[in-house]
Amino acid sequence: AAPLAAIPTKYTLDEKLTSKEDVTTYNNFYEFGTGKDDPAKNAGSLTTRPWTIEVDGLVAKPQVIDIETIMANYTMEERVYRMRCVEAWSMVIPWIGFPLASLLDQVEPLGSAKYVAFETLVRPEEMQGQAGIFQALDWPYVEGLRLDEARHPLTILATGLYGETLPNQNGAPIRLVVPWKYGFKGIKSIVKITLTEEEPPTTWNKAAPNEYGFYANVNPAVDHPRWSQATERRIGEAEGLFGGARINTLPFNGYADEVASLYEGMDLTKFY
């Protein structure tokens, strides 16, 4: 990771940051293995230059954008967000990135575009979780947002954290961060963005549709079928084994004021 400058923004939580050590060693990135420490151990092999993102689908100006162009052309902002994993743990992370909306503006979505689909790299020779007999998920990892969710000012494409470019295990060189949704929506190492009319398939929904929905909004009132989502453990809060009491999970991960209106009239137990 190299130093990466960013301007401060109003999106700065007044909560204790999770240590950089924890943020960069406790990850879910199944392309590098299913253990929490596997990504930090195995992602060093990933080549992140050259890197391009293909943006296509229902847009006026489809294009292949080079990561260097992105790094040069967009103003990088610091965003301190909560990150709530569907496994009921959470962190507070100082991301660096820029609004996804600015990139969408650049490609000019057509009026018929309703959704944004994302795709991660497939490169089994560098991503060991994509090779061998045991593969946890279908590759490529795919995710999606409704266009209004994608355009929301909180939704960013992150290129760094803690003042540096993204470590590979956190989704280098560029990933999605949607702070009011469970972490698995934050697709990593993005190579393709497609604007569509239909709701795109998403990886965890394909793996277990009754457990992971398309929306995946953080919601303490809607449990995962196998465990409760009412509380979470904040990573790094415990002193060793003690003092790591659970905290209550907030609706929309604490961003309800900003985003609840996106889902007005929707039954969130049905659209989980």
């Binding site: 060693t25 406790y26 929490k36 453990r233 990573i235 790094g236 060793g240 790591g244």
Partner: peptide, 18 residues
């Protein structure tokens, strides 16, 4: 494991790990 947990050797989520 208990010893590691006390002295911070069980990673980011020691309770879960233990």
């Amino acid at each position: 494991g208990f010893y590691l947990g006390i002295f911070g050797g069980l990673g980011a989520d020691p309770v879960r790990a233990f």
